[in-house]
């Protein structure tokens, strides 16, 4: 399946190919993102790592780490 992901400055979003029934956790692993450092949303709702993704999902990954 194909989903659309936006991650911080890459706001436009990029398309990603994932296996059927892949979870948010799989997505983060594939993108090499430490889950401690982000929160994720689909539409206006936060989703957790065990959430199963669906074809055409639009996922936003937001980095939560801050300044010096």
């Amino acid at each position: 399946m194909e989903i659309k992901v936006s991650y911080d400055r890459n706001q436009g979003g990029k398309k990603m190919e994932l296996d059927e029934n892949a979870t948010v956790k799989n997505l983060l692993e594939k993108m090499n993102i430490n889950p401690v450092t982000v929160i994720m949303s689909r539409g206006n709702d936060i989703i957790l790592e065990n959430e199963i993704l669906k074809d055409k999902d639009e996922i936003k990954i937001m980095s939560v780490i801050s300044g010096g």
């Binding site: 911080d8 929160i39 949303s41 936060i46 937001m62 939560v64 300044g67």
Partner: peptide, 24 residues
């Protein structure tokens, strides 16, 4: 934790853009 604060800010409509300082 940072993640707790961000979650609280997001779900309470306080902020949804967590851009960090370019110098950090």
């Amino acid at each position: 934790s940072e993640k707790e604060v961000a979650t609280y800010a997001f779900i309470n409509g306080i902020l949804d853009d967590f851009t960090e300082c370019p110098n950090v």
